[in-house]
Structure formats: C-alpha cells, structure tokens
Write a protein that binds this DNA or RNA. Structure first.
Length: 486
RNA sequence: GGCGGCGUACCCAAGUGGCUAAGGGAGAGGUCUGCAAAACCUUUAUGCAGCGGUUCGAAUCCGCUCGCCGCCUCCA
C-alpha cells in the first residue's frame, strides 16, 4: 500500500512499526457547535482508511479524540448560559447523531481531553525538566527555540514566521512562536489544580498526551484536516518528540477542504452547511458517496448540483440491483453451461476486485478511482443481463458479481441497503406526497387501463405519478416504480 | 512576502513517462418499448491553462507566464 505522507511530501510504501498492525490517531472535533460538512469529510475519510486496513488484514487501533475543554466551549457556555461541560456533552451527543447517520463507525478509543489532565500535567512537567518549556505567571509555554526541528512538517522557517507579523504579542513568551501548554485560568473559568496553580491544558498538548497513552510514543498514522497541519500538528511533533526523544509519527495524512464558490468552508466566513442541514435534503449515503467520489487530498466544491449527481449515481447502482433481483427470481432453463456473454463477463469479473478495486485503494486510498471501477462492473453486469442469460451457471455468475459489488461497497460503507430501503429513504428526503400503498393502487389502475389498451388513461396516470416524483418502469411481468432523482 | 497545492470534455472527476486519456452527470442519435422509463450501443478532449525545454516518447519531468485556492491567527 502507498500513502501520501505530508512530512516527506511524497507517496510512500506503507510499512507499519509492527507487522500487520496499524495504529492511527485522527484529530476529532472541538465540541462547541454542530458539525459541518467539512467535519463529515474528515470523519468519513479516516473511517474508510481504517476499514480498508482492517480489510487488508491489519490489526487496527484507531483513536479519535474529542476536545472537550477550550476557549470556544467556554465562550459558548457563557452565551448559552449553561455550564461549559454541558456544552461539551451536548455537542458530543450531536456529533454522534450526525456521524451515526453518515455511517461513520466509532473509533476503538475516543478519548477526551478532560479525562487526561493527569497525563497532560505529567508531560508538561517533563518538558519543563528537559528544558523545552518554561513557566510564566501561572502558565506554561513551549520553547520553540529548544526544538531545532520545529517547522519540519509545515516546512516553515521560524525566522520567516516571526517576520510574517500576524502573531499575537505576548510579553510572557520568550519567543512569539512559543505556544501554551498550560493556561492559567481567569476568574470564573473552569480549572484543574496543577503545580503551576489553577489552569487548563493548552490545545495541542492533549493530542500528545492522549496519543501517547493509547498508541504509544511512536505510532503509524496521524491525520486530520489540512488546516491542522500548522500550528496544531507541528506543535504536537515538537511536544511529543521533545518529551519522548523518539520519532512521533511515521505517516502524516491530511484531508483537503470543502469549498463553496471555491472558497474554503469555514465558520468565520459563515459559508458552511451543518451535516444535519444537508441531511434534511439528501440521503446520508448520497453525502457519503459525494465525499468519497473525489480523492481525499483534493478540495471538493460543495453544491446541490454535485450532490444531485451523486444521487443519480447511487440510483444507477440500486437500479441495477433491482434488475439482479428480478433476474434471480426467474426460473433458469436448467442448462448447466455458461452462455457466451457469460464467459466474457466471467472473465471481467474475476479480474475486477483484486485487479482494480484493491489496486485503487492501495494507491493512497483512491476512492474516486475505486468507485469508477465499481461502475465499470455495473455497466458490464447490465450488459450481461441485457443478453438475457438463462442457465444455472449464468445465474450463479450474476450472484457472484453482486457479492463482489457488495464486498467493495462494504469497505466504503456504501451500497449496503436494498433498493426498497433506498427508495423509502428518497421518499422521505424528497417529501413525496404519496404512500407506497397509494403508488401500488395507481399502478394497479394503470395496469387495468393497459390491459384494455386504454393508452390515454395509462399515460395520464403515469404522468400524474411522475409529477409527484415517481417514475414507472413497465416490465414483462409487472410495473416497477422508483423515486425520481436529481 | 514565505511555504504548499490546483488548472483534464458542457459539468464533476481518475490518470503523474509509453496500449484506443477511467468513471458519473448532461446533450445528440440508435436498439428495446403501445408510448415511456431503465439498460445497452454510438457520439461529445488528435488533446489535458499557455509558451518553451528534457526525452525515442509527456497531461504526467523541468523552466517561465497566466488564472484560481490554501496555510502562515481559531478552524476538519
């Protein structure tokens, strides 16, 4: 497998610290508000990575944290007039609600900053002892000058950064780039006792403390959004390697942003959509598919049009699954041999999964290409079904193809439902003003008209349904319905 | 200003040295159908922002130019 490593700027062969085992830490969220679609991207990308490692036979330990104490949480609490920890609890719950809907699995360990205060204090002390940190007026700062490699991840030169001005002036810092490991608490703020008085942890130190505790001093993969690269991950390296004297992380992995009108989606610009807002209008699988249909490092432009295209793609998939179901219900002609078309398709199928899907995923988790291969197989499968296969072997072949598709879908956590479930969900999302019973009633009426060759009435009924978002498909042995997409 | 990235058809998007430049959406024509829908077939980039260069050979490497974006402050 190859993974792009931000640290080296290259795609590298993945070689874990210990064989067949991969330890991953992904930066989660600060729980002070609802998650937006950018959080969803990050969560889904790492969810797929961990699933794929698992599929490849690795023993995976996946850690994803919650930052549950921070300035933004305190501010939010003041604004809402509730305790800070109630804010953290509330938005942690909401995080799970959103992520569950998107099919993002739980991490193996989901540590919280406030549950690791003891570990954090111990590391800060160690950093002071080793001369990498200093106390000033009840706070503790990391001394960037003490760590010569500072800037190696974000490829920055400390002198240039200082010249770059936009750094807040703080008299207590020895170097403007120094950052807080421990912050003295102000009146009325939450605090924990420490050797330096009452205070709370700085932002970066929690990830050092929690990753070390749950994954060890050195581990394989550390990930997060590209905006965490600096200063967060740079600071984590400085803290962790200074404290342990060992390399911190082997592969740094960063996902790209979601943009709106080409601009990064962000809270401060106000150009963001929360996950729940999007899920009011689109099925969760559509969102997941959309986010995986571009490579994880590239930016994704977010728009309704693109979401609709994703919806159409998924619909194409489930339409094919319906065809398979229809086909399997039919009796075979009892013949053993594979048809001519079956032989061709069989050859394609045997090379599909190993040859294509895995190859795509092995290459830096190229889900976009992997999905492309899925649709190649879908087309070939449809073509085979068009050839009217009928033997026992043909039928087995179709079922084998369906299994392959399901296996690929499982890794991406897509295509896991039945067509009926898909359409039921679409009916909700699109607020179709008809029940299934009503639809069946209309189909029955139309069927009667068709038997009497009353094409006008039949077409009127079909048009009525279509206006309400239901499309009909006449087949030899009945009429199927589906929800119009796009 | 420093660092990094991007620019592939009407739209989205893979491909980063060598077969006919994946896949999805949209459009056009066709097969099928009572008509549709779905599916399939054909079709829409002799060319991958532009200009030079390296090479037997480049969308893919190098240089320059243009355009867009990100990070350098909290941020997935």
């Amino acid at each position: 497998m190859k993974i792009y490593n931000t640290l080296t700027g290259k795609k590298e062969e993945f070689i874990p610290f210990s064989k067949n085992e991969v330890r991953i830490y992904a930066c989660g969220v600060t729980v002070y508000d609802y998650c937006h679609i950018g959080h969803a991207r990050s969560a889904i990308v790492f969810d797929v990575m961990r699933k794929y490692f698992h599929y490849k036979g690795f023993h995976v330990t996946y850690v994803r944290n919650f930052t549950d104490i921070d300035d933004k949480i305190i501010n939010r609490a003041q604004k809402e007039g509730i305790p800070w920890d109630a804010v953290a609890r509330k938005y942690t719950d909401e995080y799970y609600t959103d992520m569950d809907r998107l099919g993002v699995g739980r991490a193996d360990v989901e540590p919280k900053a406030t549950e690791h205060i003891g570990e954090i204090i111990a590391i800060v002390q160690k950093l002071i002892e080793k001369g990498f940190a200093y106390e000033a007026d009840g706070s503790v700062y990391y001394s960037v000058d003490a760590f010569p490699a500072y800037g190696k991840l974000s490829k920055r030169d400390t002198d240039e950064m200082i010249a770059g001005a936009r750094i807040e002036v703080d008299e207590r810092k020895r170097n403007p780039l120094d950052f807080a490991l421990w912050k003295k608490s102000k009146e009325g703020e939450p605090f924990w006792e420490s050797p330096w008085g009452e205070g709370r942890p700085g932002w970066h130190i929690e990830c050092t403390a929690m990753s070390m505790k749950h994954l060890g001093e050195s581990f394989d993969i550390h990930g997060g959004g590209a905006d965490l690269l600096f200063p967060h991950h740079e600071n984590e390296i400085a803290q962790s390697e200074a404290a342990s004297g060992k390399p911190f992380v082997k592969y740094w992995v960063h996902n790209g942003f979601i943009t709106i009108d080409k601009e990064k989606m962000s809270k401060s610009l106000g150009n963001f959509f929360t996950i729940r807002e999007v899920l009011d209008r689109f099925d969760p699988e559509v969102v997941r598919f959309f986010l995986l249909s571009t490579h994880y490092r590239s930016p994704i432009e977010f728009s309704d049009l693109l979401l609709q295209e994703a919806e159409a793609s998924i619909d194409k998939y489930y339409t094919t699954i319906m065809r398979i179901q229809d086909f399997v219900e039919k009796k075979t002609d009892g013949k053993e041999a594979l048809s001519k078309a079956g032989e061709l398709f069989s050859a394609l199928l045997s090379s599909f999964f190993i040859g294509n899907f895995q190859e795509a995923m092995d290459d830096d988790f190229n889900t976009a290409l992997a999905i492309g291969h899925i649709f190649e197989l879908v087309r070939e499968l449809n073509r085979f079904l068009d050839s009217k296969p009928s033997s026992l072997k043909d039928r087995q072949l179709v079922l084998a193809a369906q299994e392959r598709l399901a296996e690929a879908g499982e890794i991406l956590h897509l295509f896991g439902r039945t067509p009926l479930e898909w359409y039921a969900s679409l009916m909700k999302v699109k607020s179709i003003g008809l029940s299934e019973t009503e639809i069946h009633q209309k189909i029955k009426e139309r069927q009667d008209a068709r038997l009497g060759k009353d094409w006008q009435l039949a077409d009127t009924i079909r048009r009525e349904l279509e206006e309400k978002g239901i499309i009909l498909e006449d087949k030899k042995d009945g009429t199927a319905w589906k929800v119009r997409v796009g």
